[in-house]
Amino acid sequence: MGQVPHLQALHDKYNDKGFQILAVSKEDAGLIESKLIKGKSATYGVVKANIGSLYKTSGIPHCWVLDAEGKCIFEGHPAGVTEDKVEEWTKDLAPTKVDKELAKELKGGVKAFEEGDMGKALKEVAAAKESEDEAVKADAEYLAGLIEKHVTVYTAKMESAKKSGDLVKLGKTLEEAADKFKGSEQGDKWKDELKELEKSDAYKDTKKAADELDKVRDKLEDMRPSSARKKLEKIAEKYPDTPAGKEAAELAKRYAE
């Protein structure tokens, strides 16, 4: 079996747009290499891991697609993952690569952008916008547009975290966003917001619940289902109003007899 041809095509077309393939097998690393890597043309992500107890399936190949938040949005045979679907799933993601050749004046900006340093990329864009050359200006606008998409995605993530009351997620998003946009006005704004958030009691509680859940989650695989359930239920009882508390309650159900 091995390689599914259309995976490579999907990877080639959508990887730059934020679509990541992880072909997972629990087999021997040498076997995996001989089948997909050595002398083969697969350039999509391949992983050795045993996920059978987490991602149950009665047959392979089988796949699951997770959205940017880690939520499952598709489950079934890989052939069901069509270009149309991937197009739809990735259309709101922020690009991580610049998909066309830009003026050499923007070389530093493109490099910073692809490295995720939006603060620096914005500075380079601002400088290029001062250029007399219209083509350079246009390219600067283009790069600015790509950067703006990242602002939009972060803003949307923050809004959804606020809406669901997941203050930990909000904090993490603010931290990540502020870091990526370090040195820019936008970055400073997010940094200030994070400082305010960290002062609130609601945030402290939500964070405690999330930390406890993370600790238990790391050990779940090695626990008996009954003790896993007890640990999870305890967190759910202690922090019923937090997202981690709710997630613990949901997870506990998975381990219920």
Binding site: Q20, I21, H62, W64, L66, V81, V86
Partner: peptide, 8 residues
């Protein structure tokens, strides 16, 4: 990112 986990 959108992640496709393919079990093979």
């Amino acid at each position: 990112k959108v992640v496709m986990i393919e079990s093979w």
